[in-house]
């Protein structure tokens, strides 16, 4: 009887843990910021070590945060496209900011990589992936577009293919054009394959 009781208790405890383990899970459900929620204010250093608050870097008409990597071939396939995006829309009041949250990519490596690939947009280092955690960023490249009032209006890929010749769906550009025209963003989320952000710990 005593043994049965202990066994029952054990099973109960195990099933509870199984539930918690599944819910809390392995890294990274797509929790994080939802469409319509406000951009959190974070202070992050740029590649020269100077700290910026995200709010001070916001564009007049909107802000794009893109999680990037120096090592990920998918992110690297987008270097030229990201720089072009920053050039095209910088003049139209949209700030494009790169975020490097990979624990395996120190700031001097990120700085050298940006110079080598001619990335002139602002890049911030997210030490300890605090911003990535808050936004729920998982992959590189992964974009978050906030409108002029700082609300998230698009989250996900830049476009449908790392191979530029296969691009059919300009999801991020379409979303930016929509907010510039004062329209609703038609497709608010879209995914593509990329590299897992390498988090600290």
């Amino acid at each position: 009887m005593r043994r049965n009781y202990a066994l029952a208790l054990l099973l109960l405890a195990l099933s509870f843990i199984a539930v918690v383990a599944w819910q809390g899970g392995d890294g990274a459900m797509r929790a994080g910021i939802k469409i319509g929620e406000s951009m959190p204010d974070f202070r992050l250093p740029d590649l020269d070590g100077k700290e910026h608050s995200l709010s001070s870097l916001r564009g007049k008409n909107g802000t794009v945060l893109i999680f990037i990597s120096t090592q990920c071939p998918v992110s690297n396939a987008y270097n030229a496209r990201m720089e072009k995006l920053a050039e095209d829309y910088g003049a139209r009041g949209i700030a494009v900011i790169g975020i490097n949250a990979n624990a395996t990519e120190p700031v001097d490596v990120v700085k050298r990589h940006a110079a080598e690939h001619n990335l002139k947009f602002t890049i911030l280092k997210d030490h300890g992936n605090k911003l990535a955690d808050r936004l729920g960023a998982q992959v590189t490249p992964e974009a978050f577009l906030f409108d002029a009032s700082g609300k998230l209006v698009y989250h996900g890929r830049i476009d449908n293919s790392r191979d530029e010749s296969q691009v059919q769906s300009q999801d991020l550009r379409d979303a930016i054009e929509a907010i510039l025209a004062g329209r609703q963003v038609a497709k608010t989320e879209a995914r593509a394959f990329g590299c897992t952000i390498k988090r600290a710990s």
């Binding site: 992959v139 992964e142 890929r157 990329g194 897992t196």
Partner: peptide, 9 residues
Amino acid sequence: DQEWSGALP
């Protein structure tokens, strides 16, 4: 999986 961001592996 709806929860998957597309990150590999």
